[in-house]
Structure formats: C-alpha cells, structure tokens
Design a protein around this nucleic acid. Structure first.
Length: 592
RNA sequence: GCGCUCGUAGCUCAGUUGGAUAGAGCAACGGCCUUCGAAGCCGUGUGUCGAAGGUUCGACUCCUUCCGGGCGCACCA
C-alpha cells in the first residue's frame, strides 16, 4: 500500500544531521569537479529538501544552481556527482537516484530506527539542548482585576504556556511570570459600582465566582455611566483617594482584588496554567517613576514647560512620548519600565519574552527603546511575541457590549460536550472518571485549537463549528495516544531483540523519518516561538500513524519478529506523542 | 496621513531560509466495524495562491506599486 501523503513532511523532516551530511558530501564533489574543470564561480551550498513522493527517495538535492557554472544540464550534473560519490568510499551510505534535476537519496533507516528506539526508552526523551544554559523569562496572561478571563486571554495563556514549555524542552532555564494589572481608574470603576449598588454581597454569599462578581459591577458601572455624566469623574476621584492611601478605599480595593484573584486562580488551575512569579502593578509603578526621574537627571529625558517628562523618539522615527504626567503621576509605560527593571534585578535573564497582543507593538517598541536609553544593555534582549486578535463571526469581542466569550463558560460547555460524546460512544463505564476525562478532552481541544494557528495571524472563533472533536483537533490527537497505549498494553512479548530492519512499508519508513525529525521541529518551533509548527507536525504524524494502523496488522503480524518490530515502532510513536502533547497542552489519556 | 500586519478551496487554516503536479481539516455526497479502540480509515475539489509588474533556470514564497481587511500612531491600559 502506497502512502498517499505527498504533503506529509514535505518539510524539514529528515533530521538535520543526515541532511547536512549529504549536503557536505555533494558540495565537496561539486567543488572538486569545479576545480578539475577550472571553473571559477561562487558555488552555493546545495539546497536539501524532501522529495514529494516516498518512491522518489528520502532526501533530494537540487542541482539547478550549478547548471550555469558547469554549462551542463542539472540531470547530467547529478549523474556526475553520483559517479564521484560512488567512487569515494567515505561517502555517506544510501542509494542514489537521479530524478529530473535532482539527486535523490534513498536511505537505509534501520540504524536510525534503532537509535530512536533506544532513545525513546530513556529518560528525557524528546528534549534537545539547543538552548541549554539560557535563562529565559516569559511573561503572559496579565489580567486586569476587574473582570474574568475571556477567549482572548485563553489564546494568550495557551501561547505563553506552550512557548515556555517549548523553551524548556530545548534546555532553557525558564521562568514564567504574570503581571497583575490591579491599579488604575478602570479598577476603581467596579469598586465604585459595588459601593453604590451592592448590598454587601460577596462571592460566598452570592454564590458567584469572585472574578465574575467583580465583573458584574464593572458592567454595572458602564450602564450607570450612560445615565449619569458624573460617573467618570467620581471614578477618577476614587483613584486619587486610592493613590493617597485612603484607608476605606484601600480596604475595598484589597477585598475586591482578592475576590478576583481567587477567581482567576481557580480558572488557571482548571486550565492547567501556572506561574513561577506574580508581579503587581501596584508594586512596580513607583520604581518606574524613580527610574524616569533618574533618566531626567542624566539628561536622557526632558521636562517640558507644562511639567511633564517626555522622551524624544525621533531616532526611531516616532514622535515624543510622555513618561510622567504634568501632575507627576505615572502611566502604563511608566509601570512597564519599573516592572522590567524589577524583573531583571530579581532574575537576570538572557531573554525576556512578552506575550502580548499585536495591538501593542508600538508600545513595546517604545518601551524597549527607552530601557536602552536608560543604559540597560539587556534592553536588546527583550522580545515582544505579538499575536493576533481572536474574532467572533460577527466581529471583535467587546467587554462592554457583552460579546465576549467567557473562558470559564467555554471550558464548561466543551467539557459537557465531551462528556456527551463519551456517553454516546458508551465509554462511560470503561473510564475511571468520565468527568475528569471529559475535562481533559475539552482542555486538549481548546489548547490545540488556539495553538494550531500561526500566532501572528488574526483568527476567527466560530463557537458552533470551530471546536469539533474530529479531524484536525485535540481529541483526534488524544485518540491516537489512547490507541497506541491500548496496543502496548495488549502486547505480551518483550521488546528485546527489536529488529528495525523489518520495518519496510512506506508508512513505516515515513514514520521513522518523521520521528527522527522531532528534535528539529522542537528547535525550530522554539526558535521562532511558534507552537503551530509543532501542532502541524503532530497532526501529520498522527495521520500517517492512523493510516498505517488501519492497514497493518500490528499484534498479529505474519511473524512474531515483525509484531515486535511494529510494537517497537508504536512505542517510539507513543513517546513522541506524549512529549509533544505535553508541550502543546494536550493532556495525554491512556483511555478516553 | 504615517507605521505594523494579514490576504491560499464555501468555511477554518498549513505550505520546508525560492524548487519536482498548490495541501489538510470542517461542511456535502458515497463506501468500510464477526480482525489490535469507527473521536478512525478510504473515495469524490475547474483554487485568477488579493491584482499588476519585476528579479530568477524556477516565485504562494523575494522586490516594487496598487487594492482589500485588521491593529496602532493618548498626559487610557
């Protein structure tokens, strides 16, 4: 049976090591041929790719680039290179085929498979060392304390968590940090509404989760402000009281912040999100203020006639930017300056990644520039990982108009759908805890859904159709894991004497090659801070596995040795899937 | 106006530092459960890769211009 996945691993699949070995050998041959023929030209290193069809070989090297210098057709050149390689006993091993203008190589995969098999059974499988020794801080989530999490936060949290795990898998020392936006006039709005309209209820007495309760008052404020033109001024007044340390205001603030934070914590826990450290804007904004005054003293910033402190952004082709208001109070950017400095003092990092929506690209450009002006050489190691908006079919989510997709509610609905699915399939009796399984299915579905799209792209969330449990979805992937687990559980022999040379089917070869490329996918995904690469990889690997599984007898193969070899392949697949799922945020399920 | 970003099948998205006939999932229709889990597998697609130029042996990919969507350019966060 022919594998029909031409798109499968068109990409950088064969591991980089094998590819570069062949590239070197071919390059050497070309260079030698050139000098023998007295050809003087800039000869580029060859382009190595993967042929579109498995029968064309495992590696393809394009000869087009040399055609001109040699005045020879690419195919003739390929033949000449083949002669040279075959005459040289030190050439890498493989069968060379000439196809069109390409020199293709068909590899013996048994050694590779054996190596993978050994690795799959050792601790730390699925990790690389490309970022070993690097200290990387990742900031994400950063909620306000006036409302619960919504779908936009979920994309942020999924990306942030996944990138942190990716970096860790590549050997980096990673620290996840959150920044709680707990001060400012918007926070005062829900407090004010609570003061005016509540009868002293709290989460316990109302039975409403804290973040949702506070969010209700934020909405109440918005409605009230429509009627009463003094509402905004009253909120501003409350902010001034807060900044002055008015005990009553601070007490209310502490109380309501606590409710929200408890609620957010509960949501994080349900979504499997965690942080190594929390920062609070209420604690860092003063430091930012001090640093700006220091900068002013150093002459980096200027005080304008009206008393405000500004920075001239002409060197980066932008206007002036206010850093301290004329009344001396701080702004958003003031706080971020303080927070960044505090973080570097806490934990000197090599890189700090801010996972923040793309609408704030300008803000971070300015922030990084200012930190550089202040003389922090680590400013150049700051990186804004911008991601696109999540739209609904009818447009953008708007908190004030109530068109947000609430995170808790979404997770609840998905869990319910998953449980329904379990019941429909009559699996409830087979599971230890169907409700917990349903929850994990829901988590896998949402994380995979949010991560399979390139971060930079805006995406549309269609609640009705988008989160299917079939096809290219989290649950599909989990299902692969469950089937593999099931096979390994049923296999009664030992895997000693595993013989990879028996794995000769096209699908088996495809799987081995794909497995070998896993570390490269991880590195690339981590390097570009792009979880979608890893998502695409696991999905395509799942598809070949599924195809192979459907057509191939594993436990009852023709011979016991062949069964052993195939079960061994299943083991490698399972370990690779487990590793990838963990990084993406798809809970691994032995049964579902 | 300036800047950033995106534009690939009805919908949601992939597309390897330019490479061999542009791919998946969903939706639709039709097959496959007395064989390792059917959340599965197989089949059915006339896409101006937003448009036009350019560079190249070769362009969805790079450059230029234009068109369209989104975001930003606050003493808001």
């Amino acid at each position: 049976m022919l594998a029909k996945f031409p798109s499968l691993f068109d990409g950088d699949v064969m591991n980089a090591e094998t590819k570069s070995k062949w590239a070197d050998a071919v390059y050497q041959a070309i260079v030698t041929m050139a000098s023998q023929a007295n050809i003087e030209a800039d000869l580029p290193r060859p382009v190595v790719l993967t042929p579109p069809k498995p029968e064309l070989g495992d590696i393809a090297i394009a000869m087009f680039a040399y055609s001109k210098a040699f005045h020879k057709a690419p195919a003739a050149l390929a033949s000449a290179v083949r002669e040279a390689l075959m005459a040289d006993p030190s050439s890498p091993k493989g069968e060379i085929l000439i196809e069109g203008g390409y020199l293709n190589v068909r590899l013996g995969l048994a050694d590779l498979a054996m190596q993978l098999f050994t690795q799959a059974r050792t601790e730390g499988f699925g990790h690389t060392s490309s970022l070993k020794g690097r200290r990387i801080m990742v900031e994400f989530s950063c909620p306000n304390t006036n409302k619960p999490l919504h779908l936009g936060h979920m994309r942020n949290d999924s990306i942030g968590s996944c990138v942190a795990r990716l970096l860790k898998a590549c050997g980096a020392d990673v620290r996840k940090v959150n920044l709680i936006n707990n001060r400012g006039v918007h926070i005062c709005k829900s407090m004010l509404a609570y003061q005016k309209f509540s009868k002293g209820e709290d989460p316990a007495s109302s039975g409403i989760k804290g973040d949702h309760l506070v969010g209700e008052y934020y909405v109440k404020f918005a409605n009230w402000a429509k009627e009463d033109p003094t509402a905004e001024a009253q909120a501003q007044e409350m902010l001034e009281k807060w900044e002055a340390g008015d005990p009553e205001t601070i007490a209310l603030w502490t109380r309501m912040n606590g409710w929200t934070l408890d609620g957010l914590e509960e949501s994080y826990k349900a979504m499997g999100i965690s942080f190594d450290k929390y920062y609070y804007e209420s604690n860092t904004y003063k430091l930012g203020k001090d640093k700006i005054l220091e900068g002013l003293a150093k002459g980096v910033f200027t005080r304008e006639e009206d008393g405000s402190v500004q920075v001239d952004l002409a060197p980066i082709k932008l206007d002036k930017k206010v850093l301290l208001r004329r009344d001396g109070t701080s702004l958003y950017i003031t706080q971020d300056i303080g927070t960044a400095i505090a973080r570097h003092e806490d934990w000197p990092f090599d890189t700090l990644i801010y996972v923040v929506a793309s609408e704030q690209i300008y803000h971070f450009k300015v922030l990084f520039y200012i930190l550089g002006l202040l003389g922090f050489d680590w400013a150049k190691s700051l990186y804004h990982l911008a991601y696109g908006m999540v739209y609904l079919p009818d447009g953008r989510m708007k908190s004030r108009e109530g068109t947000v997709v609430d995170a808790d509610e979404l997770l609840r609905q998905l869990t319910e759908m998953a449980l329904e699915e379990i019941r429909k399939k009559d699996r409830e009796g087979e599971l230890d805890d169907a409700a917990r399984t349903a929850h994990y299915v829901a988590l896998g579905a949402i994380n995979y859904y949010l991560l399979q799209v390139n971060p930079m792209r805006d995406m549309t969330f269609n609640p009705a159709e988008s989160l299917s449990f079939t096809g290219n979805s989290g649950p599909y992937l989990q299902y692969m894991g469950a089937r593999l687990s099931s096979i390994l559980k049923r296999y009664e022999g030992s895997l000693d004497g595993f013989d990879p040379s028996l794995l000769t089917l096209d699908d088996e070869r495809s799987i081995i090659k794909a497995l070998a490329s896993y570390p490269d996918v991880l590195d690339k995904s981590a390097e570009s801070y792009d979880p979608s690469l890893l998502c695409t990889y696991v999905f395509e690997l799942s598809k070949v596995f599924s195809h192979w599984y459907h057509d191939t007898q594993i436990l009852k193969a023709e011979t016991a040795e062949l069964s052993k070899a195939r079960v061994g392949l299943c083991l490698m697949l399972l370990e690779t899937f487990k590793s990838a799922y963990e990084i993406i945020g798809i809970p691994f399920l032995e049964e579902m």
